[in-house]
Design a protein around this nucleic acid. Structure first.
Lengths: 188, 188
DNA sequence: TACGTTTCCCTAAAGGTTTTAGGCAAATCA
DNA sequence: TGATTTGCCTAAAACCTTTAGGGAAACGTA
């Protein structure tokens, strides 16, 4: 009875498991259980358990970049800014486990070959709508990354006690503020 | 031969272990090894392994709040802003394991009793130097948290490839930008 | 000082995860 | 059809978590 395992299917199922049970619950054992297969069978398709987690991280980065690229098509300026921001926030809400996986620290070579570089390019694309030269553009790319990641991660971690005002309101005002800042980037 | 274990000492040693080997390497077994004691002995002082990690997280939050309170004493405006920001960044660089621990998701009661609330108050103290009323002040507190946490976490995770321009330069320009933004907070 | 109690760490054991080594049978190919 | 490859299995070792119960040292008290 062949179960039809493959690295592809395993990583995808791992991503689902992460979203359902949390990224830290993603284990080779749990995955084997899910396929109703013995644990050792997975080791023909995965190098080790870290390999599984890395695979999920890379998948999440790809999916995020795909969504971002689609969201940015035909948009510019503040519209592009909020579109990109919402991609990150929505993805984290829809796929908390995958989003957590995307935060996994990758070794430099893997990171360089990942969709991470597309993310940087997409952020730069948003900044084309604002008037920034190097090195300010790089500073701004990093600021965008920081705000998006920091906000989403604090929100998901319960860092903002679910009290008034609504976090969606804060999100919208944060994007207003970022837009204002980029249009009016201060001189050193 | 009594080893002189106590919850206090275990948590503190766990924090050191986290800084040296990474927060995910913090395990009851590793800790027992460090004290040259059998694993089961630790369970008189710790409820379970999560209890250990939670203890480290609470310790880190306390230490961070202490540093922040000291750094803010006698400062206001942009000086206070950069002082607070540097406390987070420096702490994360000095104590990466503890900083990772501080990101641990706590259950609501534990969080409410933690130093997390002091952090919120300290951020509000910084904002006294700027002219913001509610609910914008709350939005701004959340923005500060997002930027500080997001920046530090991306920087430490290698998210900013160590290429030009220097990340310290970006940090300084980011604080300039935040200051400018807070002085000139946009209307909705 | 001797006795009872508490404190502290230990042994023992069960259950879960990771990973490697080697085997067998079904699928594939010549 | 026979040979090879593929795919999942059994077995086993190593490590982490957690609970149950025991024994000796430290401590308080008479």
């Amino acid at each position: 009875m062949k179960a039809g395992l493959s690295r592809e299917r395993l990583v995808r199922a791992g991503a689902e498991l992460a979203d359902e049970a949390g990224f830290d619950q993603v284990t080779v054992s749990a995955l084997a259980r899910r396929f109703d297969v013995k644990v050792a069978s997975l080791y023909s398709h995965l190098k080790n358990s870290r390999d599984l987690r890395t695979g999920i991280a890379l998948l999440a980065l790809e999916e995020l970049a795909d969504r971002a690229a689609e969201a940015l098509a035909g948009r510019a300026g503040k519209e592009a800014l909020t579109a990109l921001a919402d991609v990150y926030r929505d993805y984290a809400h829809e796929h908390p486990g995958r989003y957590a996986a995307a935060q996994l620290r990758l070794d430099p070579e893997t990171a360089a070959a990942s969709a991470g570089v597309r993310h940087a390019r997409l952020a730069r694309a948003v900044l084309r709508g604002y008037d920034l030269d190097e090195p300010d553009q790089t500073h701004a790319v990093r600021l965008l990354g920081s705000v998006f990641h920091g906000y989403v991660s604090l929100e998901m971690g319960g860092g903002f006690s679910h009290s008034a005002p609504d976090t969606r309101e804060t999100w919208s005002r944060t994007l207003d503020a970022l837009d204002a800042l980029l249009r009016n980037w201060p001189d050193p």
